[in-house]
């Protein structure tokens, strides 16, 4: 009787089944970094805490693009502290863009799910277990964090920024569209209500937060999407969702709070508005 129970006994309940499948699944977090010396240890600590508290199998892949501030040194220390099976360093020589960072990271990922997020603490790892629960619930191909639904929201945006938005930003820190090295500036223009409304009207994407970059993908889905995407910068995040809709992938959404820690600085990036609109119109005309 005992041997029967040990090997291959059918799961007794749905709950047990869920636990089993969670045990088999592995989640690879891709963290592209550029000058994140301060934030990297903190985000890794929060990730480890979140994963170990919920008993999820994980690995964190840090892709540093030759940051001059010593991000790599901190990453190496973290690797020693948490072990090289949990923290994987896959640095590159210089800044080569977000899309290729994901491709590079994925080559080394052993998980069957990939989580992408920003390393600047605007995305909190406490939401990851919710992403995973959501994914299992609807067997989704993609789960996207959204600031625009339910309890989702932002911290650190003034009224003007909420309406049209401008300034130093959040979405892909360190990955300036304009190619300037430092400080890492891109626009939060795209994250605003006005821009979001326009995007929803023009693209009808089937997801409420297109430019957020806190998402969970099935590995093969992310591979396919990156292969299809052509744009750069934060338009890339938008294109991923638009292409996902074209390829009939299913998308689940989890409300997230987005804590913008660079509150106060506000620069109107005319160039960024133009490049956002150009990206939006390109997607509008081609997809």
């Amino acid at each position: 009787m005992a041997s029967l129970e040990v090997s291959g006994s059918p799961p007794r309940s749905r709950r047990e089944l869920e636990v089993r499948s969670t045990l088999q699944d592995k989640y690879s977090v891709l963290l592209p970094t550029y000058n994140e010396r301060e934030n990297l240890p903190l985000i890794v600590w929060l990730l480890v805490k979140s994963f170990s508290e919920s008993g999820i199998n994980y690995e964190i892949i840090i892709i540093d693009d030759g940051s001059p501030d010593g991000t790599r040194d901190v990453a190496e220390q973290l690797e020693k502290i948490y072990g090289s099976d949990r923290i994987l360093l896959r640095p590159r020589e210089k800044k080569l863009g977000l899309g290729t960072a994901y491709i590079h990271g994925m080559k080394h990922a052993t998980g069957n799910y990939i989580i992408i997020m920003d390393a600047d603490l605007s995305h909190h790892p406490k939401f990851i277990p919710e992403f995973i629960r959501k994914q299992k619930e609807g067997n989704f191909d993609i789960v996207s964090g959204t600031r625009y639904k339910g309890n989702g929201g932002v911290y650190g945006w003034d009224l003007k920024r909420k309406i049209i938005s401008d300034g130093v930003l959040p979405c892909c820190p360190g990955w300036s569209l304009l190619g300037s090295n430092d400080p890492p500036i891109s626009a939060s223009w795209d994250c605003s209500r006005g821009a979001n409304f326009l995007t929803q009207i023009l693209l009808r994407p089937g997801a409420s937060d297109l430019t957020g970059s806190f998402r969970l993908y099935r590995k093969e889905v992310l591979e396919k999407l990156i292969e299809k995407c052509v744009s750069k910068g934060y338009v890339f995040q938008m294109e991923m969702i638009v292409r996902a809709r074209q390829l009939n992938y299913t998308i689940g959404e989890v409300p997230i709070s987005f804590v913008d820690r660079v509150y106060g600085e506000s620069k109107l990036g005319g160039n960024e508005i133009v490049s956002f609109l150009r990206g939006l119109l390109t997607l509008f005309a081609t997809t």
């Binding site: 929201g153 911290y155 009224l159 209500r193 409304f197 709070s257 804590v259």
Partner: peptide
Amino acid sequence: VGYRVATFHDCEDAA
């Protein structure tokens, strides 16, 4: 847009 801006959550607890 006005309604959504007005009802946009300020996540002070999260901060």
